[in-house]
């Protein structure tokens, strides 16, 4: 039914706009890892660096993002310093060429 509706509506489309979804992150959400050298977020489309970014917070809410976030196409890379054991929170916002903004977050644990 869902695909039928999609095909029906496919008869006419519109110049619609996308959103840059988070496709994958390293470390993955809710994973337990050794202190990562980089945190890499891959989005579904190229980002606008001027309006996209991310923060890394430790379990006390302190900003431990380290070096400025590097954005290259659909990749966003954080380079924190050595992370001690604990739960970390990544909060990101992405803007694609369509100008739409997406926000999201996830946690990972350093063993």
């Amino acid at each position: 039914m869902h695909k039928s509706l999609t095909l029906l509506f496919a008869l006419l489309a519109t110049p619609a706009f996308a959103h840059a979804h988070l496709q994958k992150s390293t470390p993955a959400a809710n994973s337990k890892v050794a202190s990562p050298q980089h945190i890499v977020l891959r989005f579904s489309e190229a980002l606008e660096p001027a309006f996209s970014g991310a923060l890394l917070l430790d379990q006390d809410g302190r900003n431990v993002s380290g070096a400025p976030v590097v954005i290259d196409g659909p990749l966003m890379t954080l380079t924190p310093g050595k992370l001690v054991a604990g739960v970390y929170h990544v909060s990101w916002h992405s803007v694609g060429h369509d100008t739409h903004r997406m926000d999201g977050d996830f946690n990972f644990t350093v063993k």
């Binding site: 509506f9 496919a10 006419l12 489309a13 519109t14």
Partner: peptide, 21 residues
């Protein structure tokens, strides 16, 4: 042409996008 490009756009946007429509 409008209908053909509409079909192509819709297929790209709805079938090729991330997540659920």
């Amino acid at each position: 042409i409008l209908v053909m490009t509409g079909m192509l756009n819709a297929a790209t946007i709805l079938l090729g996008g991330e997540g659920h429509d």
